[in-house]
Nucleic acid binder design. Structure first.
Length: 329
DNA sequence: CCGAGATCCCGCCAAG
DNA sequence: AACTTGGCGGGATCTC
């Protein structure tokens, strides 16, 4: 059971993500409900149930509470809680998981839940947080975890955090499925340089991450699972196991995806022949690339390039029709 | 498209 | 007792 806002709004996206999280049989994994303590309108575009404001008793039943960003001056300027918020916070179970989005962290801090705890918020509010609550360890991160309390930097980071939580609760495979359904990045890996500069939460070091980093810079070469395992200083068996735990995929499937992505980029930016693209992407043969390419992108390399070059925006979206759900075992 | 050989994947299980 | 590791078998998948 997940009950979001103590105050305010803006939990729509993470709430939707969680309420759309399904298990293998299509059952919802989280029962998402919205409520407010202050009578502010809650966004409920998501098929999630709107609980009339004032019904803070609902909070007492929640396993997880998401606290959205707030502009409440008591909370943001004075570092204290107004009465409705304070009362709402007292309703929350002592063992409930708490998640803040953006400036929602100020509510947690004002409630005294973050003493000596790592926490984050939107970068523009980090200084405020540290000044109002000196005992908080304010960190510039996408999200942080400290025991049962997690904080996120903003709406986008909140989605990452929710995926992280789904992953912890139900495994990487489920998290990936939810991410795919929501059309967001499933998890952060070393092949996404835009994330490299962003301080990531220091969750346990992912043991296959180094091998993955190495792989994405050597896609043009033949890569076997045995080599990746050796890079990770693990046995093949353990490496495969970790890999699935950490990425939700198998090494071989993951490699194919990376190579197709690389092929897409080469097709978009060069006039190299398809055979040459296949070679540079590390496919063992052009035939092999065509098969993999079609399986993932939904169209042939040639058609993809043609469609891409015709599309108006040079950095536009994938112009090929993604035919949604592929039956997948 | 076929078929042989290589490689991958994962349940199983003994060992630590 | 509970957990992790890593070798093995062999069906699935890929490659040539």
């Amino acid at each position: 059971l997940l009950v979001p806002p103590v105050v305010g709004f803006d939990v729509a996206a993470p709430g939707s993500l969680l309420s759309n999280a399904l298990d293998d049989h299509g059952n919802r994994l989280y029962d998402v409900k919205f409520c407010t303590a202050r009578g502010e309108p809650a966004l409920t575009t998501l098929g999630a149930e709107l609980v009339p404001h004032g019904d803070a008793r609902l909070l007492a039943t929640a396993d997880t509470v998401i606290i959205p960003g707030t502009h409440n001056p008591d909370v943001r300027r004075l570092g204290s809680l107004d009465e409705p918020t304070r009362h709402a916070m007292t309703q929350i179970r002592a063992d409930a998981r708490l998640i803040s989005i953006c400036t929602g962290v100020f509510v947690l801090a004002a409630a005294g839940l973050l003493a000596e705890a790592a926490a984050t918020t939107h970068w523009s509010a980090l200084d405020d947080l540290q000044r109002l609550h000196p005992s908080v360890i304010a960190k510039r991160a996408l999200y942080t975890e400290h025991g049962r309390i997690s904080t996120s930097a903003g709406l986008g980071a909140a989605i990452d955090l929710c995926l992280h939580i789904i992953r912890q609760d139900h495994g990487a495979q489920t998290a990936n499925r939810v991410a795919r359904f929501a059309a967001v990045q499933g998890w952060r890996s070393g092949d996404q340089p835009q994330f490299a500069e962003t301080p990531l939460p220091e969750e346990g070091v992912q043991s296959t991450a180094i091998a993955r980093d190495w792989a994405v810079t050597h896609l043009g070469e033949p890569i076997t699972v045995a080599v990746l395992a050796a890079i990770s200083r693990q046995s093949v068996r353990t490496f495969s196991r970790r890999f699935r735990e950490e990425t939700g995929s198998t090494p071989h499937v993951w490699l194919s995806q990376q190579r197709v992505r690389l092929a897409q980029r080469i097709l978009e930016t060069t006039d190299l022949s398809v055979d040459e693209v296949a070679h540079r992407s590390g496919f063992s043969s052009p035939t092999s690339m065509r098969v993999r390419f079609r399986a993932i992108v939904g169209t042939s390399p040639g058609a993809y390039r043609q469609a891409f070059s015709k599309s108006d925006s040079p950095h536009g979206r994938n112009p090929s029709p993604h035919d949604g759900v592929r039956s997948m075992g």
